[in-house]
Simulated scan of single mutants.
Amino acid sequence: QAVICCVNVQHNCAGHGCTGSSTVLVYKEHEKMMKTVKWIEHHKPLDLILNTAQMCDASHVQ
């Protein structure tokens, strides 16, 4: 029997020193706003951590 469940992954920002040093413009309904937000620049973006604390069906992933 196949079991389908969701997994929660987080990027290992602490281990790679990722910073919010960039800013990007905010878009609303395809129009540029005058507002900017910080953008996280991930170093090694494929280094992910499986967050089992946020998973209600973690026993299936084990």
Rank of each mutant, 00 (worst) to 15 (best):
C6R: 13
V26N: 04
E31Q: 15
H60D: 13
A53W: 02
C5L: 08
C18S: 09
T36G: 03
H11V: 05
H43S: 01
V24Y: 14
I49T: 05
D47A: 07
G15H: 01
H42E: 03
L50N: 02
V7N: 06
W39V: 00
C56A: 15
S21P: 06
I40C: 00
P45M: 08
L48R: 01
I4N: 13
G17L: 05
H42S: 01
S22T: 01
H60Y: 15
H60W: 14
Q1A: 09
K35S: 05
H11Q: 07
I40E: 01
Q1S: 08
Q1C: 01
T36M: 11
N8E: 07
Q1F: 10
K28Q: 12
I40N: 01
A53V: 01
S59V: 06
H43P: 04
S21H: 01
M33W: 04
T23A: 04
V3C: 03
I49M: 07
K32E: 14
E41Q: 03
V9D: 01
I4C: 14
I40D: 00
H42G: 00
A2I: 12
E31L: 13
L25C: 11
M33T: 15
G20L: 06
V24W: 06
V9K: 00
T36Q: 14
D47N: 10
Q54V: 02
M55K: 10
W39Y: 11
T52C: 11
T19N: 05
I49G: 04
V24Q: 14
H42I: 00
E41R: 11
E29M: 00
G15D: 01
M55R: 12
C56R: 15
H16K: 05
C56M: 15
N8W: 11
W39K: 12
N8L: 07
E31T: 15
A58I: 04
I4D: 10
H60Q: 14
L50W: 04
E29V: 02
A14H: 03
Q1G: 12
Q10K: 10
Q54I: 05
M34D: 12
V24S: 13
L25N: 09
H60S: 15
M55L: 04
N8Y: 13
V61A: 11
K35N: 03
T19H: 02
I40S: 02
K44Y: 03
T19F: 05
Q54R: 13
H16N: 06
D57T: 09
Q62R: 13
L50Y: 00
D47S: 08
C18W: 09
H60K: 15
C18D: 08
N51V: 11
C5F: 12
M55N: 12
V24R: 15
Q10Y: 04
E41V: 04
Q1M: 08
S21I: 00
A2H: 11
G20M: 09
M34R: 14
N51A: 09
G20F: 10
E41M: 03
C56E: 15
A58R: 14
L50F: 05
L25P: 03
H43G: 00
T36F: 06
G17F: 10
Q10H: 06
H30R: 14
N12W: 07
G17A: 03
V3A: 09
S21L: 00
V7I: 15
N12L: 09
